[in-house]
């Protein structure tokens, strides 16, 4: 199949995440046209109804907008896009911190570890 999906999360949400991350990475720019539902379904190897839900969800989140007869476009709302980027950063950070805490690293240690890791990385 085109994509691998996790077992527990709805597939349409996994595709929502994927598209958001593409936007955050700049692979999709504000104003870009997304593939049609059918094209996207073929690309991802999933049911078109699933893609329809993905697009509806993205629209509800105001990340994309559908223009009648033209298709679905990435929103040109700069503030929203920036917020999207921040949200993603936050989400990744939260995940990271939670996982470190799970293996017994305190927040203070974390800062030191991160600094030394990044320092070595240079």
């Amino acid at each position: 199949m085109g994509e691998e999906f996790q077992a527990s999360k709805p597939i349409y949400m996994q595709i929502v995440d994927k598209i958001i991350s593409e936007i955050a990475q700049g692979k999709q720019l504000p104003g870009d046209k997304l593939p049609s539902v059918r094209e996207m379904a073929v690309q991802m190897g999933v049911n078109p109804n699933t893609i329809q839900r993905t697009y509806t969800e993205l629209e509800r989140m105001q990340i994309v907008e559908s223009r009648r007869g033209q298709g679905t476009f990435v929103s040109e709302n700069k503030a929203l896009m920036e917020e999207l980027g921040r949200n993603m950063q936050e989400e990744i950070m939260e995940n990271f911190i939670r996982k470190m805490e799970e293996i017994g690293v305190t927040r203070d240690q974390l800062v030191v570890l991160l600094q030394s890791y990044l320092g070595e990385g240079k």
Partner: peptide, 15 residues
């Protein structure tokens, strides 16, 4: 329905 299995039960079809 496949998506509601995941959404409501948190299960894949195989599970």
């Amino acid at each position: 329905s496949v998506e509601s299995l995941r959404e409501e039960e948190g299960q894949s079809v195989l599970q």
